Simulated scan of single mutants.
Amino acid sequence: MWIKSGLLPLLLSYVVALVLTVMPIPAMFEPWRPDWISLVLIYWLIAIPHRVGFGTVLILGLLTDILMGTTFGIYATALVVMAYPALRHFQRIRNYSLTQQLLIVGVLILIKRALVYELEHVLNDAVFNWPYFYPVLSSAIIWPWVFLVMRRYRRRYLIR
């Protein structure tokens, strides 16, 4: 039942994104780690907006807060703010070329990262660091491959 409805493969993609977010990588590449949760969420928001909405985004944001050990609600708030334009304009974004989507994804992740930084700064006195924004660039660059892999995954498991 869960596989036929596509719910299990959908949940599995979220788990993979959460694991990739905290999976150890060499220290020199750590600042460049793509924002996997945002990439997966943006894909699902533009691919199947009738099944993935603000509730899903909020739950994944709260799980990310727990996983990253931040103040509860910071990632949830930032992901909801990032998801709004993607959900509002999903039909346009779908029809853009991968290059145009790459730019939009970069802007959405920049908004999310800036909001997370600002909330961390206000609540926890976080200090500004340029490398904090490197994932914006790496996520935008990797978007075409994420898009193609996720589309193949969606079609393979008939997620509609």
Results as ranks from 00 to 15, higher is better:
7 L>K: 10
10 L>K: 06
11 L>C: 12
11 L>Y: 08
11 L>R: 04
14 Y>H: 12
14 Y>D: 07
15 V>G: 09
16 V>M: 09
17 A>P: 04
29 F>C: 05
31 P>F: 06
31 P>D: 08
33 R>S: 07
39 L>D: 08
45 L>Y: 08
51 R>A: 05
52 V>M: 12
55 G>T: 04
60 L>R: 02
61 G>Y: 00
63 L>T: 08
66 I>G: 03
66 I>D: 03
67 L>H: 03
67 L>R: 10
70 T>P: 02
73 G>Q: 00
74 I>W: 01
75 Y>T: 07
79 L>S: 07
80 V>L: 02
81 V>N: 00
83 A>E: 09
83 A>F: 08
87 L>H: 11
91 Q>N: 13
95 N>V: 08
96 Y>P: 01
98 L>M: 13
100 Q>N: 13
101 Q>N: 05
103 L>Q: 06
106 G>M: 12
108 L>T: 05
109 I>W: 08
111 I>M: 15
115 L>K: 01
119 L>K: 01
119 L>N: 02
125 D>H: 15
126 A>C: 03
126 A>G: 03
126 A>D: 10
131 P>W: 10
133 F>M: 01
133 F>L: 02
134 Y>Q: 09
134 Y>A: 15
136 V>R: 07
138 S>Q: 00
138 S>N: 06
148 L>W: 14
150 M>Q: 03
152 R>G: 05
156 R>N: 07
159 I>K: 13
160 R>M: 08
